[in-house]
Amino acid sequence: MKILVAVKRVVDYNIKVRIKADGSDVDIAGVKMGINPFDENAIEEALRLKEKGNASEVVVVSIGSAANQDVLRHTLAMGADRAILLETDVNVQPLGVAKLLKAMIEREQTKLIMLGKQAIDDDAGQAGQMLAALLDYPQGTFASTVQIEGDEIVVTREVDGGTETLALTLPAIITADLRLNEPRFVKLPNLMMARKKPIETINASEFGIDLKPRLNLLKVSEPPARKAGIKVGSVEELINKLRAHEGIQL
């Protein structure tokens, strides 16, 4: 069984993103980039399934500019077998991502597709569910554990108030939550070896899919900041301050 994992290149989670002076978009020129953390969990799980003998090959796909080669190299260094870059200058939105991935899955004939549950840049959290819809596949979103059992994948999902366990008939889509696993540390020799592995590049326009954004970005702005208050010197002072507020009962 082949597993396809989709990864997104995003601004590093430690970076505080700034806005362009004209408010037209965020300014990410020269900012440190990396693999979307949830996608790294997806890769890690795919590799573990392969190591357990549940899968024969792990193929990684990323959508974007040639710069995305760095995140693909990272996944190859983690242990992925092949990497494919669907090259485009368009800032592809989740529906477009789902359409491109559908085309790749039809080409690669993979039975399990794994993605992160959301990207930490746009925080949309849609691509996996949209892909499942387009393929008419079952979906296991926000996964915290997965297990292959025959022709099914059993997935425990993190939901508000607890967890829920489903059995999905393969082929299926899984989106990874952070607690699915702890991604492995990439060793330097593996990174060096990954540099020699080829990355297949396909021009995304070859699929003839309309990738035009459906949502037009009108502007970006800073959210109203919460003002820092005061420091209090003791528990007593804290209680007195709180009691002075209407509606707070202590």
């Binding site: 840049d121 746009d122 925080d123 949309a124 949502l215 970005l217 009108l218 970006v220 702005s221």
Partner: peptide, 29 residues
């Protein structure tokens, strides 16, 4: 398309939502 976690609806097809963990607000149509 879907618009996730809308903070404010400003026109019948225009929305404010946050990105980058709430650090930036975007207005999308």
């Amino acid at each position: 398309a879907m618009i996730s976690d809308v903070l404010e609806i400003t026109a019948e097809n225009t929305y404010v939502r946050s990105i980058y963990a709430g650090n930036i607000l975007t207005t999308v149509q």
